[in-house]
Design a protein around this nucleic acid. Structure first.
Lengths: 220, 220
DNA sequence: GTCTATAACCTGATAGAC
DNA sequence: GTCTATCAGGTTATAGAC
């Protein structure tokens, strides 16, 4: 026990953590159904039985990974969207930067999450419980700012959900489609990531452009 | 044999076709790994053994469905993108309309395709062969028009791949994220589809706005 | 062509030695 | 805590009756 704890501190990789890291990689890459507990054992360099020893079942281990990923998406931005000292435009810039940095590090989390949610939407809500990925129900300051801007720009004729969809689509979709994009264009990972870095500046400009364009173009 | 053929013509559903239809539904919804041949048999109302009788294996049946879906995405637009009588702006409008109509009918094809491609990118290219989803290598007329526009608008400072990504992202992403979006917003399927119908008009406007915005905003 | 029964294999989980 | 061996249940695919 003492030896184990020491090793864990030194290498920062207890057996439990090594399994979780392996599970993160394999689940995220192949999805729940296509992942065998044997794959995780192999990836971790440990034994099959240890997975059940530490996590009781494949499903319980999966739930832990899933929750982590959801929190990575939600929790990490709470400080940003509730910051009363930044403007809406600044928030958009910061959020795009934050997400693109995270996605360059973890490019296949979005497709993993979207696919698992799609496979069984109810399951996640029932099992994980929305309360675990949400900081209570305090109103988000970003929303307040958004509504103000929308009112002054007379964007009432366009559903704000469109702008939110566009923000998420422009930021996340390239990563979701990355294998296809890279295959069709012949882009290396480095070249692809360079494009994503460019988008940190471009997306806020585009979001702004779409918000303004709706002002006059949509009244035809 | 004669009876079977007659029935197939009358009801347009031979046993083989009934299996394919069931497989389309189940594979598209749950993905390859999570689908059991029993699910397909059940969904088709037929016997388990018939799947292997007609298609030899689960994998071969899957490949057929997969190829169909890929072709649905690629083949169906060849007439549009190579039409020399329409402008680039018109093509964008037609393409957005075409895809949104198709996606309202088949909302979970994109997440299915993207997930399977992500699970094993090499497999698809090796197995399906890119030649089967591409009409040879004739240059696409849309590309020619695009390059002309890009040159006149002096968009040389922005990689055209961004605009292509934006087009695909704005059109397809809402469907990929639909379960999550609908869960968070409480939108019914009908309300969601109504939003998508709105996007048929909005996306071409937005694409135009982003192309123009890059002209002056990106030079800072 | 279609069905039932079953073979052959795979996967998650556990028992028990160390 | 960690490993090997194995069980129990489920899955694909096929054999053989009709």
């Amino acid at each position: 026990m003492a030896k184990k704890a020491k090793e864990a501190i030194e290498k920062n990789t207890s057996t439990e953590e090594r399994i979780k890291e392996a599970a993160r990689r394999v689940f995220t890459q192949k999805g729940y159904a296509a992942t065998r507990t044997r794959d995780i054992a192999e990836e971790s360099g440990l034994n099959l039985a240890l997975i059940n020893y530490y996590f009781r079942s494949k499903e319980k281990l999966f739930d832990i990974i899933m929750l982590e990923h959801l929190q990575l998406f939600i929790h990490s931005i709470m400080g940003i969207v509730n910051d009363e000292s930044t403007s809406l435009q600044e928030k958009i810039e910061i959020l795009v930067g934050h997400y693109i940095d995270m996605l360059i590090k973890n490019p296949n989390i979005p497709i993993f999450l979207l696919n698992e949610i799609n496979a069984d939407p109810k399951k996640l809500i029932a099992k994980i419980g929305i309360d675990k990925i949400q900081h209570g129900h305090e109103p988000v300051y970003l929303m307040k700012q958004w509504m103000e801007i929308a009112a002054t720009k007379k964007m009432a004729n366009i559903n704000p959900i469109h702008i939110l969809m566009n923000f998420v689509a422009l930021t996340i979709f390239p990563f979701v489609g990355s294998p296809l994009i890279r295959n069709r264009t012949g882009l290396s990972i480095e070249a692809f990531n360079k494009l994503m870095e460019e988008r940190k500046k471009l997306i806020p400009i585009w979001i702004n452009a779409t918000m303004n364009s709706a002002l006059y173009d949509n009244g035809q």
